[in-house]
Computed example of a mutant assay.
Amino acid sequence: METLWLFMAFFVVALLYASAGFGGGSSYLAVLALAGLPAGIIRPIALICNLVVTGGGSYAFARAGVTPWRRALPLVAASMPAAFLGGRQALPREQYLLLLGGLLLLAGILMVFRPAPRDTARAGGAAAGAVAVGIGGVVGFVSGVLGIGGGIFLSPILFLTRWAHARAIAATTSLFIVLNSAAGLAGQFSVGIDLDLSLTAVLVLAVLVGGWLGTRLTLERFPPHVIQKVAAALILLVGLRLVWTNWPT
């Protein structure tokens, strides 16, 4: 019964998050924490599911010609080594989930008050490239520590700076997540992790189907303002839940 509940929860999370270009790692972490699984199992499962959802999403965005490769690559190049280093770090379970929840609340608030994205991207340059490298490095490290892909932090920054239109941001976020999830997972494996293979296989199937459906909705159905609202609502709800359940008493 618990496995069926987790399957349905992961399916819904993957569908909703993929519609905004996210992998859903933060909500996977929350669901697994609520299920009472050991901390050592939670992070690798979340990252593997992130890889599945955003891997397919990134491929679909690239095929549709949505991904702004020239602008996205500096972000990714800086973030991957930082995510690997972050993945080697470990925090106590309660502190870890409280930190995750607080950062998600901050990200959600930023997205609620962000300006609407423009239809075209701003011109890049040397200064813009340097800023992208800095952002990628910081977000990559924090994401590696938390065990998520980092898109949930990157996306508000890109929207606030009017970096590109909504679908280009969703495509960049998806690419960022898949590569940072791989780097963070490599960092975790380098120091040794526990992995429940049977449970992981079931949950991977759930997010594979849900993520595919969510990506198709983004490309074919959802207008930009709906993508933005879905992303902000998900971030705030998950952040509030994590802070509420892990606040020291």
Rank of each mutant, 00 (worst) to 15 (best):
L160A: 10
A127G: 13
A171E: 01
A168G: 01
A83K: 04
G87D: 09
F61Q: 06
A78V: 00
G125M: 09
F61C: 03
L100W: 00
F159N: 04
L97P: 00
L75W: 08
L160Q: 09
P92C: 03
M111H: 11
F141V: 07
L158S: 04
F159V: 08
P74M: 07
A83Q: 03
A127T: 15
R122A: 13
F61Y: 15
Y59K: 14
L179V: 11
A62V: 13
V178F: 09
V76G: 09
P68H: 11
L97R: 04
A64P: 08
S181F: 07
W69I: 05
T120I: 14
R93Q: 15
L100M: 09
H165E: 14
L179Q: 08
Y59D: 10
W69L: 10
L158R: 00
P115K: 04
G140F: 08
Q89F: 13
L91Y: 06
W69T: 11
Q95T: 15
R114K: 11
R70W: 11
A130M: 15
S174M: 04
A127C: 12
P115V: 00
I148Q: 00
R70A: 13
A107Y: 03
P81I: 08
L106A: 14
H165C: 11
R88W: 02
L105Q: 01
F153T: 04
A126V: 12
A78E: 10
I177E: 03
L110F: 12
G151H: 00
V145K: 08
A72S: 13
G150Y: 05
A123H: 14
T67Q: 07
R162I: 08
A128N: 11
I157L: 12
P68N: 05
G149C: 01
Y59W: 15
A170L: 00
G134E: 02
S143L: 06
G108I: 05
G144E: 02
F153W: 01
L154F: 02
R71Q: 13
A183I: 09
L100P: 02
A83T: 06
G129L: 10
F176E: 09
N180W: 02
G108Y: 02
S174Q: 05
A72D: 07
G102A: 10
V112S: 04
Y96K: 10
A127I: 13
G124R: 02
V133M: 14
G147P: 06
F159C: 02
W163G: 06
P115S: 03
Y96S: 15
R122F: 08
P68I: 06
G57T: 09
G87Q: 01
